[in-house]
């Protein structure tokens, strides 16, 4: 019985592979062709690479050291030279970028499979969980709930996601190594802190079946505190959770932290 199943599956596989080969005689025609796109996130602080436990100074004579740098990326989509947008399948389109999962160079990889082959010029993604996804409840979340919970990206006292986590300590003129916890997220429909960014590629990204381009995205953590708005730990921005005045400011700052540094079209 099992054997039969697999034989049939292999057969089906062969048939479908054949079809796509048949279509492939015109080299300009990319229809039906898909490839991988790799997003490489690299956290930095200004022009330095981010390193755990290193003290970085910010405005107002304050400094911070972090032990945890995580954020949720979702709704990734790319737009090609003709203006067509390819959106990654909703159910899989949510990721946690954690510095702890970085390689020795502190780079965190997200591999997107089955992207339509095309020449892409820009990328858009959200930071956090949008209202529509949240309203689905458990539906379509698969294992993301476990992952988010395991990564400490869900509150245990409220049902919601922490969109970002920057944990560590801070120092000011008057205090040294006090706890710093920036856990910003949305609260139901009452407070929507989901934000999106669109970044142009410095050169066209060519997704092909045999080509897996890499987009190197630098996230400047200093922008969390010195972004669109400058905030001071001394003024209460050392503990940010669901507060309705502080969190939108952090959300807008986080929105300014991303930049496409370069692209590899291998």
């Amino acid at each position: 019985m099992k054997l039969l199943k697999y034989t049939f599956a292999l057969l089906a596989c062969a048939i479908f592979t054949n079809c796509s080969i048949d279509n492939d005689d015109n080299e300009e025609d990319l229809s039906g062709e898909t490839g991988e796109l790799i997003l490489k996130f690299d956290n930095s602080v200004g022009d330095q690479d981010f390193i755990f436990e290193t003290s970085y100074s910010k405005s107002n004579n304050e400094s911070f050291k972090l032990t945890n740098v995580k954020y949720i990326i979702s709704n990734v989509r790319v737009t090609d030279t003709e203006g067509n947008t390819f959106t990654y399948p909703t159910e899989e389109n949510v990721f946690i970028v954690s510095e702890l999962n970085g390689n020795n160079a502190g780079e965190i990889y997200i591999t997107l499979n089955d992207i339509d082959a095309a020449d892409y010029t820009e990328i858009t993604f959200g930071i956090g969980i949008d209202q529509e996804r949240f309203a689905l409840g458990a539906d379509g979340q698969g294992d993301f709930l476990d992952l988010a919970s395991e990564e400490g990206m869900m509150w245990s006292w409220a049902s919601g996601y922490k969109f970002v986590r920057f944990d560590g300590t801070f120092s000011t003129d008057t205090v040294t190594d006090e706890p710093l916890n920036i856990h910003m997220g949305s609260v139901g429909e009452a407070l929507d802190n989901y934000r999106e960014v669109t970044l142009s590629f410095p050169n066209t990204v060519l997704v092909r079946e045999e080509n897996s381009p890499e987009v190197h995205i630098v996230a400047d953590i200093s922008k969390v505190f010195d972004g669109a708005t400058t905030v001071n730990f001394a003024d209460g921005y050392d503990q940010v959770h669901t507060d309705e005045t502080e969190t939108p400011i952090i959300a807008s700052n986080v929105q300014t932290m991303f930049e496409v540094h370069h692209v590899h079209n291998d």
Binding site: A135, G137, A138, S149, S156, W157, S159, A190
Partner: peptide, 26 residues
Amino acid sequence: DGAATHLDLQPIIPLTSEVEMNETLS
């Protein structure tokens, strides 16, 4: 206090709260 806004996600609170069920989802 309205800390949960979706019924599906509410159980995560008692499941993971230390003074209630003190578990992890996984």
